[in-house]
Design a protein around this nucleic acid. Structure first.
Lengths: 151, 151
DNA sequence: CGCCTTATTGCAAAAGGTTTGCAATAAGAA
DNA sequence: TTCTTATTGCAAACCTTTTGCAATAAGGCG
């Protein structure tokens, strides 16, 4: 059930996030709340450094962000992405969602579009079976030149 | 000892590689020949450090390998892969081949199987078109537990 | 064959991104 | 409020990769 105004909606989401932490016996600290706030307001995967620079001056140490993201990833609250530029990126994952999806990234300006298409399940199953692997997933990202950069 | 047939075959391949370098006005140096030898004998993507440790003691500096791989990649003689563990991997590419393919990697023991299946072209084209991107490619790797590690 | 030019190398330092040890701090429980 | 213990900040360490620079050696030319 969604509420009418945006503010309330956001509040609920943060509450949902913190309660999820509490459920896992994690403390709700200033830095963690601030990080979750940033993530909630950003629809795209963010690097730790990007999160850091969004944070108010001195709000939290970079190392703390690294530790927080590791924990959030372990709890499944955040999904890690790798755009191949050497920096991990993270996106908040809704509860009961595994966060699996892909992106289309501009190789000129680094803009990012979310992609809903996925690798065909039956082909993946076939690959797993052929090679005797179990628990097979994949990492998939698309790269190209965005409309703006074509001009 | 290897049979003569195979030996000849290997020699030819190395000659093909060096002639390709020569064609591009690159010098055939000791380190480069040694690196190509290593790559030729390894069917799987290797990290620079792995190449380095395959090399006879003092044969070549790590920095030289990094520079060589950059050059070989630019010439299209080598294909870069990213298994998400923070180290780039490289595989030799046959001439007239773009080297595009994927892998299935065991998350326990890191063993690697080459995968010939690829993301469906028409879906990729659709993704490109929908978002107005041009020159779209993808990076795709599969992860799971290999037969040995299931035991 | 030996010289010359210039690409290439080795070495050491630097540049990212990420992790970690440790003492100080602060959340949450009692 | 006090107590316990997870969490933080800070600085140092780690890893992969890049880079500056002087020394070296490939390949072209005479």
């Amino acid at each position: 059930m969604h509420c009418q105004h945006r503010h309330t909606h956001e509040r609920q989401e943060l509450a949902a996030l913190t309660s999820r932490l509490r459920r896992e016996d994690r403390k709700i600290t200033g830095p963690r709340a601030a990080i979750l706030e940033i993530l909630r307001h950003h629809p795209h995967p963010l690097t730790n450094k990007e999160i850091f620079s969004e944070l108010p001056e001195g709000e939290c140490d970079l190392a703390t962000i690294y530790r927080a993201m590791q924990m959030l990833e372990k709890l499944g609250m955040v999904q890690r992405f790798d755009f191949g530029d050497g920096a991990a990126r993270f996106e908040l994952v809704g509860e009961g969602n595994n966060g699996h999806h892909h992106h289309l990234i501009c190789t000129r300006c680094a803009s990012v579009v979310e992609v809903q298409k996925c690798f065909p399940e039956e082909v993946e199953r076939e690959i797993a079976k052929t090679n005797g692997f179990t628990g097979v997933t994949h990492r998939l990202e698309f790269f190209g030149i965005c409309p703006d950069c074509q001009k």
